[in-house]
Each structure stands twice: as structure tokens, then as C-alpha cells.
Nucleic acid binder design. Structure first.
Length: 947
RNA sequence: GGGCGUAUAGCUCAGUGGUAGAGCACUGUAUUGACAUUGCAGGGGUCGGAAGUUCAACUCUUCCUACGCCCA
């Protein structure tokens, strides 16, 4: 009942067909209500994304695990979906508008968001089709999106609950502001790069005629960002710095603005660095912000000199000269900015201290500034320099949320693999900073917070609940009955004067609100995308409904596989939110893999143009080959270098299996009918069943340890070396019923064991091997049999293999044609040899090309001597060989064995070794010594015989 | 500056306190019935350097060098 396989294996012709079959028949998650659950959630790719090589690795590993567990009978659930990817998606749609000379702000927020949804429906989720090409068996029937209604509800609940628990709060402090995207970003989204820059030195004149002890009437400060001096609010010196002790508490008059600012003592100023005095711009520098606070400046009083696009605006004290207003912070697109103008003016006015240096010729020259490498923060999305900017944002108290996950890792409730990542995890968690979660975007989960006219904030899951909270609050305060109206922020012109605490309320149509109305406006910001994706392991399963069947059964997840690059972004946040809201670690094990690098070891990037497209590799070599490559290369704790040749090698492996199956079919070897191994009498069949037993055990161990490389290599070598090169060769010419049954069974075990790695070709071959009664491989049963290893059969076959190898090697070295058949003599064969010879004459003739092994003395004359186990075979070669060549061969082998014997003798003669080494080690040394000693004897005798 | 990782055959990588392996590449060889996307055989490594612990170190410890990553 086999179906004939085509002569050549063509991956493309089977992949799409099988994938459709699996998906259409619901085979990715068959009904298994009573089975033990096994759950993985897929890191949701950006809905804007397309499959890159990193996805290929990440998803291949997950698919291997999920297919393995499915085969083992578990209710294996692989949750899949896409992430709305706030900034990335908004940028995609904005770029499209730009192409049409259109822009986001030409639309209302509502209309723009509608456009994004339209884009998402039409073009989003390209990656989900691409994951299918890789063969990934996720549960598409429950595909999720982070902005699905149920998921969004969960996000709102989480925000509100964390707010009520005081774990989310609003704060005015410096954020990392991206002036290109005009939004705050979290510190994780900032990438610091060293770039060449400059260091300028200024004179800040002391006020009120004061002088330093050395007589100078100014303090020298230095900066890499001169433009910020427009918002300077202090000069700091170290409290112990004697040079400045006399002026602490006095003032300087800033050039340009004329602002009088104090000289404060603060340990932030490093006396060893430059002049020891530093200018302090609390509104535009993280360190200065802290210094400012220590100096008693409230965040709300800190001067701001930049707008959202990092153009200069007037400070609250109105001291920035007109000519600076509107300039960009620094030179951009060839146009000078505030920085350049500040330097020019300071130089003109004599406040710039030149940098004196020497040319190569030793001449002294004066430069405006000192060249210096500056660690500069860039936004990972927008790619422009990040501006520390003073704003009101929402923060998560990450420090509190981090405690439970750390404990979970310490207690082993979460196992991080490889373990070496634990240190990194702890280091970050222990030093975690407040997490800024508000983003000034239109696309995303809108923050469920409504502001009243007095700045009071009402956080609730629904608008009505917010209104109710507001009514309670204001009615109590006003002592009378008010109504509440919610307006978009843009529509609110003023607060409500009538009730007494703020101005007049009007909507944009200039319709005054009734005097007893309180106006609420909803926070216009959205949440950081990672805030929502942190809920992925449980909100995808029905949480917050804790009775949801999927949540009950599949949470906590068993395993999470992700790249180490998102350990902080995503994994740690899932752990924080998961533990806070469910009380349980979201997964038992966290497996972190590395990056896929270009063939030369460099990081792949679009700008370098060295990106490898996994779909191209699939076209060229097949999905199975690419998957196998990923698995075989995935050792723990190392990046993977791309190697097309290796992918090609695994394509060849699939072809090898294809051809082996064709051979089986041609000889009447078909699908097995039992899980148990067939009864076997022939040694070769008993042997191969034992080999399957051993392979399965090794494979299960590797899978349990998540050693993908080991698992792939085990099944690779069993298939190719053991099954194809030895077993099939050994059974050729003897296809009796027993052998056919065993061979068919072994081939089936291979297909099952290989299926997680190479799902397509194995499914095709499985189907072709026979009518499986609508029993596809994807939902077949993992090998489950009780056969053990037959030691006698193993010894016999290994004797045959040893003999064959020895004969082939000797012939090759002596230049005897490999096909030439010879006779051999084994005068006094061991019991093993006698049995092996008696029972395997045909195989010996076919593989070792020995026609007959005589159990008599070999005739006189030139002969070669072959060792097989403990036996020696003499093969007369009268006239066939060059005696010298044979002598050379034997001498070489004798030297090797002699060397071993000597080394082992040395060890065994060492009393310390014999007394102190492990008994096994001593036993092994003795056995090795005996073996090599015998070899020496055998080879010496052989040489003597040759004269 | 702090932390982590890596260094093993020409290349890409496994590996164990008992004397080193795989794939590819290379060399030789084989072709009328599974497979040249193949078979058979072979060459090739003082396991980055130094010291220490040990009967024994590629493996454990310390130091050094080089490269990479993360954090400040």
C-alpha cells in the first residue's frame, strides 16, 4: 500500500501541500481534553514585520519542542499572534502618508487610527504566512492580536489595578525624549553610541564683584552641549574643593541670558575633572536634574528651553534672547542651530576659553574646543539624539514588581537556560529604574486616565467609571450636584470657571458648557507596547477570567523561548506582570538563544546589506533543511553564524532519507503496524532494534535538556550512519518477512523521531510508506516500545562492522581494488567470530568482499593480517600486494599500539594512579592495556610472517 | 569603569577530570538497480598563553592576551 516516491526529492512540491493539510484538519491542536497540557506562547512579532533569520531560529526551536510534545501525546498548545507595535506601526502608516505628501496631523486621531486599522487588515501580518512556510505548527485558530478587544480589556484592567495598588504613578521628571518621533521612550529603547564630539570651555563671571582665591573673577565650566547653557540654573563645585569653598552660596551671571544663578556644593562635581566646576541644567540633563533637586529646585521650577522637536523656546524667566528662539538645538541638515550660535556669541564676547594644543610639527594652536569621544544616547526607532526633557509621564514602580520574579528565579520556579544568563537577569532587576510607560502616539492602548479641571486624575477601566469617580470627588468638594462631560483634550479650551476652581469651559464649537458641568479630558497618550505584551502568557488564554478553561489548563506556560536581546524588554516584564497578577511565574523554563549572524560573524543589518532572507533559503534548500540547520547549530550560549553550505548539507540529508525510503519501498518494506518492535531472530535485526532503543534514550535526554544541537546530531547519525550505511547494507539480499517488518518499523521510528526537526519530508514519507488510516505523522505516537538492547546481537554486528572496516582500510592502503573478492583464514576463531562467520556469510561477502573465511591455517606466502575484535584474519595475497606496503601499514599500526601500551603501562605502574584513581578508570586502563598489548603481539607476528 | 561570554582540525562548531569529535572543505578511490544532493577509505589539532590544584587538566582555579556583547 505504499505510494511511489518520485526519483528526486523536491521540498517545494510537498511543503505547501502538507502545511495546508495540517492546518485545514486542525492537526496543530487536536482535541486532547484529558491529556497533560504543554504550552508555549510565541513572542508576538510586530504586525508590521516580515520574517527574518532570527524569527526563523526562534520559531524553529519552538516548533521542534511543540511537535515533540505533541507526538508524546500532550495537549500541546502553541499560542500565536502579532503585536500592534506602537511606534513601528504608526511610522509605517505615517511614511505611507508622506509618500502622498500627506501627514498624520491632517487627520483627527480617530481617523488616523482608523487608517492604521485598515492598513493592518490589508497588509499586516505578512509574517504569519511566512511562519507557515517554515512549517510552524502554532494554533492559528486562536490567533491573537494585542489590540483585540479581550486583550485590550486586560491591558486596561492591569493599568487600573496597578494604579490602585500605587504601582503606577504619574510623575514629573526627565524622560528620554525622541524629538523626531515626539514621544517619550523608556531607557531600554535608548542606545548609547560613542561618537566623536567636542568639549567647550566657558567663563562664567562671578556676580557682585566676588573673586576666587586665585584672583580670577570667573568660574570655568566645560560642556559637550553648549546650547543648554541657556537654561543653566546653577554651577556646582565639590564641597571639599578648596579652590571654590569661598564662593559656595555666591552667584555667577550667565553670559547671553544674564541669569544670576547660585554656586552650589555637590559631590557630583569631580574636582579631578577639568576645572572642577560644572554647569547645571536640571531641565536637560539627568545628572543635573538630581543636583538641582538636591539644591532645592522643584521639578516644576526647572527651566525648559526646548520644545517637543528640540527647537529652542523661551524659558519661564523669559531671559533667552529673541535670536535663539526657534533654532534647532544643534546643526541639522547643514543649518546652524542654537549650539553654534551660543559658541559664536560666547567667543565674540570673550567667554570662550580656547583649547590649546600642538600640531604634529609641535606648533601651539588655539582651537574653539577640545575633540572628545562622547557617549551619546540615540533612540532605537527614530535614530536621532535623545533629549532629556522634563515632562509629566506615567511610570511603573518596577523595583517593587521585580522582587517576585527574582525570588522565583532564586527558588527555581523559573529556570533560566543557559544558566549563565541568571547573573545578567539579576543585575538588571536589582538595578531597575522606574519604567516610563506613556507614549505620545496615537496608535496603541490609550491610557485609561481622565483629568479633571483641577488636575485631579481619575483612573478607571471605562469612561463611565471615571465619570462616577469624578462625580464623587467634585460633588463632595463643591457640596452640590454637578454633571460631568468628557471632551477630547484638543477640544478643551479652558477649565470651568463657574464652579470656582478653574477657568471657563468651552468645546471647540465655542459652546460654553453649563456652569454646573465639570469637564474631564482623557489622557491622550498610549501605553508602551511592551506594557501590553507583558500580559501575553496569560491574557491570550482568557485572563482576567481566572476560570477560563484555557487559562486554567495552560497557565503557567511550560517554556518560553526568546532571543536574549529581549530578556529585559519582554521576558522580565512578563515575569513582573505575570507574577503580580497571577501569583505564578508565567513559565517554568526560560530558554534564551543567541543571534543569527552573517557568515563573516558580523551582525546582520539592513544598512550593511548583509541580511539573509530565510524565505530565500527555504526556496533554495527547503524548510526542513533550514530548520535542521538552526537546530544543529543551536548549542546553548552561542550565536549562530550563517553557513549556506551547512544548510545544503542538511538538504542532502533529507534527500538521503528520501532515497533510503525509496529503496525500502522497492524491497517491499512498508509501514509498520505496531508500536512495539517486531519479533526478531536475526542478529542484525535485534541489533538495529537495540540501536533504536539507545538512540531514543539519547534523543529524549537531549530534548529534556533543550540541547537542540545534540538532538539533531543524534537523529542525523542514526539515520545516515547506522540505518543507511550499515543496517540497509547488511540486510540487502535478505528481505525475508522478519527483516521487512523490522526495517519498516525502524524507518517509522526514524520518521517520528526526525519529524520535529524535518516535518515536511517525514510527513511525506510517512504517508508514502503506507495507508495509515488517516493517521498523519504530525499526530502520530512518539516511539514507545520495550525491546531493550540485545548484547549478543550487538557484539556480533559490531564484529562484522569492525571486520568490514578493517578489510576496506587495508585494501585501500595496499592499493587492492575494493571490489576484489578474497579468501580469509581464521585458524582458531573466538566463539563470537565463529558465530558471526557462520551466520553472516552473505553479508561478509557483500560488504567485506570476503568469499570464504576458512577455519584452518593459512597457506604460506604473502598475506595481509586483519584484526576483527580479538581475532586475526589472514588474507593471502600472493602476487597481489607489495610486501613493503603491507609492512609499512603494519609498522604504522604497531607503532601506534606500542605508544598506547607504553603510556598505559606508565599509568598502571604509577602506584598513585592505581590507588587513588576511580576504579572504573583503572579498569578501563587495564582493558585498554590488554587490548593494545594484544594488538602489538598480533602485528608483530604479522610482520614476522612477512619476513 | 563594572559584568558576561568566546578562544578546540583549513572553515563552522560539539565535547568530557582518564589523553579529542562532527559537518563542510581537502586527498585517494568507486559508477549497469536507493542515493554523485552518493559510497568507501584517508590526511589534518602541543584544545589562545602562563602558572597552580590533582595520580591525571582540553576540562577545575588564578593571571595574561585577543575578540564579542551588555550595563554605567
Amino acid at each position: 500500500m505504499t505510494s511511489e516516491l518520485s526519483k528526486t526529492f523536491d521540498p517545494a512540491s510537498i511543503e505547501a501541500r502538507w502545511y495546508r493539510h495540517w492546518e485545514d484538519n486542525g492537526l496543530f491542536r487536536p482535541e486532547r481534553p484529558d491529556a497533560q497540557p504543554f504550552t508555549i506562547v510565541n513572542p508576538p512579532p510586530n504586525v508590521t514585520g516580515s520574517l527574518h533569520i532570527g524569527h526563523a531560529l526562534d520559531n524553529t526551536l519552538q516548533d521542534i519542542v511543540i511537535r515533540y510534545e505533541r507526538l508524546r501525546g500532550k495537549d500541546a498548545l502553541w499560542v500565536v499572534g502579532t503585536d500592534h507595535a506602537g511606534i513601528a506601526t504608526q511610522m509605517v502608516v505615517e511614511r505611507q502618508l508622506e509618500e502622498r505628501q500627506d501627514k498624520r496631523t491632517n487627520y483627527s486621531r480617530e481617523d488616523f487610527v482608523k487608517k492604521v486599522w485598515e492598513w493592518k487588515e490589508e497588509s499586516g501580518g505578512t509574517i504569519t504566512t511566512q511562519l507557515r512556510r517554515l512549517g510552524c505548527s502554532m494554533d492559528w485558530s486562536r490567533e491573537q492580536f494585542t489590540m483585540d478587544p479581550h486583550f485590550s480589556d486586560a491591558v486596561l484592567k492591569v493599568f487600573v489595578d496597578l494604579y490602585n495598588d500605587k504601582l503606577i504613578y504619574r510623575d514629573k521628571r526627565l524622560v528620554n525624549w525622541d524629538p523626531k518621533l515626539k514621544t517619550a521612550i523608556s531607557d531600554l529603547e535608548v542606545e548609547t553610541q560613542d561618537i566623536p564630539g567636542q568639549f567647550w570651555h566657558f567663563k562664567y563671571p562671578l556676580a557682585d564683584g566676588i573673586k576666587l582665591d586665585d584672583g580670577r573673577d570667573y568660574i570655568e565650566v566645560a560642556t559637550t552641549r553648549p546650547e543648554t547653557m541657556l537654561a543653566d540654573m546653577a554651577v556646582a563645585v565639590h564641597p571639599d574643593d578648596d579652590r571654590y569653598k569661598s564662593v559656595v552660596g555666591k552667584e555667577v551671571i550667565l553670559p547671553i541670558t544674564g541669569r544670576k544663578v547660585p554656586i552650589v556644593a555637590d559631590e557630583h562635581a569631580d574636582p579631578e575633572l577639568g576645572s572642577g566646576a560644572v554647569k547645571i541644567t536640571p531641565g536637560h540633563d539627568f545628572n543635573d536634574f538630581e543636583v538641582g533637586k538636591r539644591a532645592g529646585i522643584a521639578a516644576g521650577d526647572m527651566l525648559n528651553m526646548l520644545d517637543a522637536e528640540a527647537n529652542v523656546c523661551q524659558t519661564a524667566d523669559g531671559l533667552v534672547p529673541e535670536e535663539y528662539l526657534g533654532l534647532h538645538r544643534f546643526k541639522r541638515d547643514g543649518v546652524d542651530g542654537a549650539r553654534e550660535l551660543v559658541i559664536q556669541r560666547l567667543k565674540e564676547q570673550g567667554f570662550l576659553i580656547p583649547h590649546v594644543t600642538k600640531t604634529k610639527k609641535g606648533e601651539e594652536v588655539e582651537l574653539d574646543s577640545e575633540p572628545r569621544t562622547i557617549a551619546t544616547p540615540f533612540g532605537d526607532r527614530g535614530g536621532v539624539v535623545i533629549e532629556p526633557w522634563l515632562t509629566d509621564q506615567w511610570y511603573v514602580d518596577a523595583e517593587k514588581l521585580a522582587q517576585a520574579p527574582m525570588q522565583a528565579v532564586r527558588d527555581g520556579d523559573i529556570e533560566i537556560i543557559p544558566q549563565s544568563w541568571e547573573k545578567t537577569f539579576f543585575h538588571w532587576m536589582e538595578n531597575i529604574q522606574p519604567w516610563c510607560i506613556s507614549r505620545q502616539l496615537w496608535w496603541g492602548h490609550r491610557i485609561p486616565a481622565w483629568f479633571g479641571p483641577d488636575g485631579e486624575v481619575f483612573v478607571a477601566e471605562t469612561e463611565q467609571q471615571a465619570i462616577d469617580l469624578a462625580l464623587q470627588h467634585y460633588n463632595a468638594e463643591a457640596g452640590r450636584s454637578l454633571t460631568v462631560e468628557v471632551l477630547e483634550a484638543a477640544s478643551v479650551k479652558h477649565g470651568n470657571k463657574e464652579i470656582g476652581w478653574v477657568g471657563e469651559a468651552r468645546d471647540t464649537s465655542d459652546t460654553p458648557s453649563p456652569s454646573n458641568t465639570v469637564i474631564l479630558r482623557r489622557d491622550s497618550d498610549v501605553l508602551d507596547t511592551w506594557f501590553s505584551s507583558g500580559l501575553w502568557p496569560f491574557a491570550t488564554l482568557g485572563w482576567p477570567d481566572e476560570n477560563a478553561p484555557l487559562y486554567q489548563k495552560h497557565y503557567p506556560n511550560d517554556l518560553l523561548i526568546s532571543g536574549f536581546d529581549i530578556l529585559f524588554f519582554w521576558d522580565a516584564r512578563m515575569a513582573m506582570q505575570g507574577m503580580h497578577f497571577t501569583g505564578k511565574a508565567p513559565w517554568k523554563r526560560l530558554y534564551l538563544h543567541g543571534l543569527v549572524r552573517a557568515a563573516d560573524g558580523s551582525k546582520m543589518s539592513k544598512s550593511k546589506g548583509n541580511v539573509v532572507d530565510p524565505l530565500g533559503l527555504i526556496d533554495q534548500y527547503g524548510a526542513d533543511a533550514l530548520r535542521f540547520f538552526m537546530a544543529a547549530m543551536e548549542s546553548q550560549g552561542r550565536d549562530i553564524k550563517m553557513d549556506d553550505e551547512r544548510v545544503k548539507g542538511y538538504r542532502n540529508f533529507a534527500t538521503k532519507l528520501w532515497n533510503a525510503t525509496r529503496f525500502c519501498q522497492a524491497n517491499g518494506i512498508t509501514a509498520s503496524t505496531t508500536l512495539e518492535a517486531p519479533a526478531a531472530g536475526h542478529a542484525v535485526n535485534k541489533w538495529i532494534i537495540g540501536e533504536v532503543t539507545e538512540t531514543l534514550a539519547k534523543l529524549d535526554t537531549a530534548m529534556a535538556d533543550l540541547r537542540f544541537d545534540a538532538a539533531a546530531n543524534i537523529i542525523y547519525h542514526f539515520t545516515w550512519d547506522t540505518f543507511c550505511d550499515w543496517y540497509i547494507e547488511l540486510i540487502k539480499g535478505n528481505f525475508d518477512e522478519e527483516t521487512k517488518a523490522v526495517a519498516g518499523w525502524v524507518l517509522d521510528q526514524i520518521l517520528v523521531m526526525l519529524h520535529p526537526f524535518m516535518p515536511f519530508v517525514t510527513e511525506e514519507l510517512w504517508g508514502a510508506q503506507g495507508d495509515r488510516a488517516n493517521y498523519p505523522l504530525i499526530t502520530a505516537k512518539w516511539p514507545d516500545f520495550d525491546a531493550g538492547v540485545d548484547a549478543d546481537a550487538k557484539a556480533e554486528v559490531e564484529w562484522l562492522i569492525g571486520l568490514t572496516g578493517a578489510v576496506r582500510g587495508a585494501k585501500n592502503e595496499l592499493g587492492i581494488p575494493p571490489g576484489q573478492k578474497l579468501d580469509a583464514y581464521c585458524e582458531a576463531p573466538s566463539a563470537l567470530a565463529a558465530d558471526a562467520i557462520a551466520r553472516n556469510a552473505a553479508a561478509i561477502e557483500r560488504l567485506a568482499r570476503i568469499s570464504t573465511i576458512h577455519t584452518s591455517t593459512a597457506p604460506e606466502g604473502a598475506a595481509m593480517q586483519i584484526g576483527a575484535g580479538t581475532d586475526t584474519l589472514v588474507i593471502p595475497l600472493e602476487g597481489l600486494i607489495d610486501i613493503d606496503a603491507e609492512k609499512a601499514r603494519l609498522t604504522k599500526a604497531l607503532e601506534a599500539s606500542t605508544k598506547e601500551v607504553k603510556s598505559l603501562e606508565g599509568r598502571l605502574g604509577n602506584a598513585n594512579f592505581v590507588e587513588r584513581a576511580k576504579p572504573e578508570a583503572v579498569e578501563k586502563a587495564k582493558a585498554d592495556h590488554a587490548h593494545h598489548g594484544a594488538e602489538v603481539e598480533r602485528l608483530t607476528a604479522a610482520l614476522e610472517r612477512l619476513g
